[in-house]
C-alpha cells in the first residue's frame, strides 16, 4: 500500500500553511518530514491521516491495505494521548474493542505488542506511573496492535529527554527490523530524521513547500556504524535549514 499526497495546499484563514505538496510513502518505507517550526508539518500529517480536509489537492491511498489491518492509518502523537484512567494493557485494549475480536485473540495481540515494546512487566501500571519514554512505548504498542499499514508519527520523541530519545530510536530501528512498518515521521530534530528516515523531505518556512528530498541508502540497522556519513548529511540539512529556522523563530504566530 502506498500513501500519496497529491498537490496538497491548505490555509487557515489568510495564512497559507501548505503550498502544493506532493509526496508518497511506500510500503516498508520511513519518510521523515523536517522543517522549521510553523511550516505546517503537523497539518500535513493530519491531512495524510484524514483528520483534516485539505483546501486543495488530495490525500490518496494506492493499493489495498493488508486485510488483517484493523486501522490502516494509525497515529503516534507527540503527547502520547494515553487515557490516564486505563492501565497500559487497557490503553492497548481500547483500540481493539470496537473490532469484535474475541477475548483470547485480543489478549494474544496485547501480550505480543507489549513484548515487542518491552512493556510486558508494566501491563498493569497506570500511565501516571510511567516515565515519558515508557508512555511513548505504550503509544507505539497501541499503534502496532491494530497492525497499521502506515504509521503517522507526529514528533513522537520530541517530548522526551535526549537519552530516552536515543534509546527509543534504537527500539524503533529494531521494531522496524521485526515488523517492517511504513511511516511518515514528522520531526524538527535532524538527528532523528537521519537515524530513522529512508527518505527525508525538507519543507520550507511557511507556506510550507518541499525544498529538498534526500534519500539515505545506508540500511537503518547499520547507521549507528556510519557516524561520519550520517553526520555529514545532518550537517548539510542543517546548513540548508538554518536561515529559515532563524526567520521562523522570529515570526509572530497567527495560527493556533
Amino acid at each position: 500500500m502506498e500513501l500519496i499526497l497529491d498537490h496538497v495546499s491548505h490555509s487557515y484563514g489568510d495564512v497559507t500553511v501548505l503550498d502544493d505538496i506532493s509526496l508518497s510513502v511506500g510500503s516498508r518505507e520511513i519518510v521523515c518530514i523536517v522543517g522549521p517550526s510553523g511550516c505546517g508539518k503537523s497539518t500535513l500529517l493530519r491531512i495524510l491521516g484524514g483528520l483534516e480536509k485539505p483546501d486543495g489537492g488530495a490525500a490518496l491511498i494506492a493499493g489495498d491495505p493488508p486485510s488483517d489491518s484493523l486501522n490502516p492509518l494509525t497515529y503516534v502523537f507527540q503527547d502520547f494521548a494515553l487515557l490516564p484512567w486505563r492501565t497500559v494493557e487497557g490503553n492497548v485494549s481500547l483500540v481493539l474493542e470496537d473490532h469484535g475480536i474475541d477475548r483470547a485473540r485480543k489478549r494474544e495481540i496485547i501480550a505480543d505488542v507489549l513484548a515487542r515494546t518491552k512493556l510486558t512487566e508494566f501491563a498493569h501500571a497506570w500511565p501516571r506511573q510511567l516515565s515519558g519514554g515508557m508512555k511513548q512505548r505504550v503509544a507505539i504498542a497501541r499503534a502496532l496492535s491494530v497492525n497499521p499499514a502506515a504509521m503517522l508519527m507526529d514528533e513522537p520523541l520530541s517530548a522526551l529527554d535526549s537519552q530516552t530519545r536515543d534509546l527509543l530510536m534504537d527500539d524503533l530501528v529494531d521494531l522496524w527490523g521485526q515488523v517492517g512498518f511504513s511511516a511518515c515521521y514528522i520531526t524538527h530534530n535532524l538527528a532523528e530524521a537521519v537515524r530513522l528516515g529512508h527518505r527525508i523531505v525538507m519543507l520550507s518556512r511557511r507556506p510550507g513547500r518541499i525544498r529538498e528530498i534526500v534519500e539515505i541508502d545506508i540500511p537503518l540497522a547499520e547507521r549507528a556504524n556510519h557516524p561520519e556519513e550520517t553526520a555529514a548529511i545532518q550537517r548539510r540539512l542543517w546548513e540548508a535549514m538554518r536561515d529559515e529556522a532563524r526567520a521562523a523563530d522570529r515570526e509572530l504566530s497567527n495560527v493556533a
Binding site: 483528520l51 486501522n71 497515529y75 487515557l83 497501541r142
Partner: peptide
Amino acid sequence: NLIRMGQSFGLSWLSIVRK
C-alpha cells in the same frame, strides 16, 4: 487530543463518549 486519538483509531462515536 484524547478525543482526536479515539477518532484516529476509528473508534465509534458511542465508544468515544463512553470510554
